[in-house]
Structures are given as structure tokens and as C-alpha cells.
Amino acid sequence: MLTLSLNNEPHTLPEPMSLSQAMEHWGLCNAMAAAAINGEFVPRSQYTTVTLHDGDTIDIVKPVGGG
């Protein structure tokens, strides 16, 4: 069991997995999402190769209005 922070909320994952698998687990797989782990941008091309660790902080964002 992994405990980590997703968008500043505590979340758990049942087992170690890739960012791609985690995003699917959380229902956040879509073309208009971008991700960062521990404050560092992760390109989409690396989603399947990056593995999440216990205590990681993940940010997943989407477009919103801005000024």
C-alpha cells in the first residue's frame, strides 16, 4: 500500500504502479491533463515508465479560465 498526495489530498494506491496506471486508477486519463511529481513536470511520454513511490506528491492539472 502506497500513501501519497494527489492534488494536495491524501490518497492511497494498492500497490506500486506507474504514473499512467495511477492516473487511470484515479480516472484522470485524458488528453487535456498534465502531471508533475514532487513539483517536477513529467512529460506524457514518460507516464508509463515513471513509477510512483510512497510519499510522492502528485499534481495533475487541466485547463481553466485565466487572466
Binding site: 494527489l6 492534488n7 494536495n8 490518497h11 484515479w26 480516472g27 484522470l28 485524458n30 491533463a33 498534465a34 499534481d59 495533475i60 492539472v61 487541466k62 485547463p63 481553466v64 479560465g65 485565466g66 487572466g67
Partner: peptide, 20 residues
Amino acid sequence: TLSLRRQNPNTPSSVSQDSS
């Protein structure tokens, strides 16, 4: 102009605070 904000798990359209 536009921006990016966090996307909540399983509720991809519910992040924004303003009704627009």
C-alpha cells in the same frame, strides 16, 4: 489567456471555482 488548475480524481470537470 487561460491557465491550469488541479483536477480532482473522478470528477474531471469540478475543479473550477467560478461558474463559467
